[in-house]
Every structure is written in C-alpha cells, then in structure tokens.
Amino acid sequence: MKKWLLPMFMIVVLVLAACGNKEDNSKKEDEGANESSSADTITYQSETGPIEVPANPKRVVVLSSFVGDLLQLGVNVVGIDSWAADNPNFKDAIKDAVVVENTDIEKIIELDPDLIIGLNGIENADKLAEIAPTVLFTYGKVDYLQQFIEIGKVVNKEDEATKWVADFKERAAKAGSEIKAKIGEDATVTVAEMFNKQMYVYGDNWGRGTEILYQEMGLNMAEKVKEDALKPGYFAISTEVLNEYAGDYVIFSTFNGEETSIENAGWYKDLDAVKNGHLFKVNGNAFYFNDPITLEYQLKFFKEKFLQ
C-alpha cells in the first residue's frame, strides 16, 4: 500500500468507528429508556390473571375496606369508601381524600387515579379498568394478614407488609398469653354489636377485633356464638337473648350515638358481663376493619382493658 494512502485509510477507519460508537450509544440509550419504562410498572398476579400496575402508585382510589392497608404502607389515597371516611383512626391521613362509590365514574375520573382497588363483584368493574389498573379481591379468599401482604404486593411493598405481619403476630400472641394468665384459660369472650337497632354477634374473621381475640390470642368463644356465628362470620339476634350468647367478657360496639339508650335498657343492665364489670364498650367505626392501623388500635385497646 502506498504511504499516501495510509492516512486516508486511517481516517476512514476512525470515521466508521465513530459512527459505530454513536449507533451503539444510541442503541444503549434506547434500551435504557425501555428499561426505565418497564421499571415504572410491575405485574401483580390477581385472582383473574396478571395485571400491570404502577411500581410506585401516587393516586389510589379504594372502593372497599382496604384504606388502612394502604395508609400503613405510606401510599397516597385520593378516593375512599364511606366507612373508611368515618373511621377516626384514619382521620388525619384521609383529610384530603374524596368519598366515592364504584358508580361514581365521572367523580373517579376527576381524581385521576393511577390505581384502583376494590372488591370482586362490584358494578362497573369494566369501566373502572378503563380509568386505571383495577385490582379486585374476594373478601375472605385469603386470611386477613395475607390480605395485607397481597395489598403490599400490588403496591410493590411486599417485604414491608410481610415484616409487619410477623411482628404483629408475635406481639398479639404475647398479649394473648398475658391476658389468659390474668382472666383464666377457660374464660370466654364475645364480640357483639348494635347497628341500626339490630344486635349481632361475631365469629373469628369479621373485623371488630375478632381476628386478634380468637386467631392470634387464642381466647375462647362462647359456645352459643360458636354454634351460630363461627361459620357465617356473624349472626343477628334479639337483644333479649344476648345474655345467652355473652361470654365472661363482652366487647360491645355501637354506632351513631346509640350508647346512652342502650345503657338504660333492661336487657343491658341484666347482662352478667355488665354486672361483673367485664363489658368493654368500643366505637364501632374505630373497630370495624381488620387493616394494620385498626388492628394496632384494637390490640392496644385489648391490652389496656383486659390487663388493667
């Protein structure tokens, strides 16, 4: 090769190399952009199949009883159900949230959610899914603690949820041992509620502190409650027969200022638990759910009342 051709040859090589590097860099930038885009979402394996949801949701609408689960995980909730709105445990965290129902399609669109969570079987589920990724759960399909972990999976915080569950179970079991040592291994506890002038007793998985008392603490359910309420979760009774369902201790919740009229009723005064000072009154709105925030409130209440 002639010497004058060498510089020209080297120039061509350098130019081609530079072009190649530029193409490689452009390709890497494009790939990086794709990776960033895919990292913005995760896939949650829902009951009905995989759903692509935000990896870090910023505006969540909750159409069911899962508000406390999301608040515990530090997720911003912009839409809530009416029951959550009345829970004093959530008051500060939901002050800017809007109460919505699954039928409030236009209202939900205005909230501009990036994730919607609710219960299976609700009306307009298809329309909701057009607004934002929508994850629906069947109530009771998994136990209440696994439900929190499932919510954690949806919002990409499974580890945080799992750690809380392990810690909660340990603390609740310890409190249960202390309570049984105080009230006796054979003592029975009944969870009762007056709502809209109807009396109910509850099994071991229907909120109101039942999961803690029976599942985690291992306290005993009154036999008649076990017969009628354990399988369905709750059982409606007349006030006159409450004493037949009442255990040695009663957790009694009321709503809407019913407490005064109840305390003056003959059936209430005749309760053995009332006579023995073993009936503990609670705010129904604060005790209604079984999310982590409510569970913490319930656990603190039980420790204070049973161990005082």
Rank of each mutant, 00 (worst) to 15 (best):
D228P: 01
L219R: 13
G209H: 14
K226Q: 02
E263F: 01
A273M: 01
N285F: 09
N256G: 10
G277T: 14
A286S: 15
A246Q: 10
D272T: 04
N283S: 10
K182F: 12
R208M: 10
V241A: 01
E263H: 01
A187Q: 04
G284N: 14
E240I: 09
T190P: 07
I237M: 14
F287L: 05
G207F: 02
L213G: 03
N283V: 09
L271F: 00
G247M: 08
T188N: 12
R208G: 06
M221F: 07
L242S: 10
M217R: 14
T260K: 13
G207H: 07
E223S: 09
M221H: 08
L279N: 10
D186W: 01
A181T: 14
A187N: 02
L219S: 03
L299A: 15
T188A: 08
K269S: 03
V282K: 08
A192E: 03
V225N: 13
K224M: 03
F255L: 06
N283K: 06
Q215R: 11
Y249P: 01
P232Y: 01
Y288N: 11
N205L: 05
D270C: 11
I183S: 01
W267H: 11
H278Q: 15
Y268W: 12
F289L: 08
G207Y: 06
I293K: 14
I183A: 07
L219W: 02
G277S: 12
L230A: 12
V250S: 08
D204F: 06
N283M: 10
K231E: 09
L219G: 05
T239E: 11
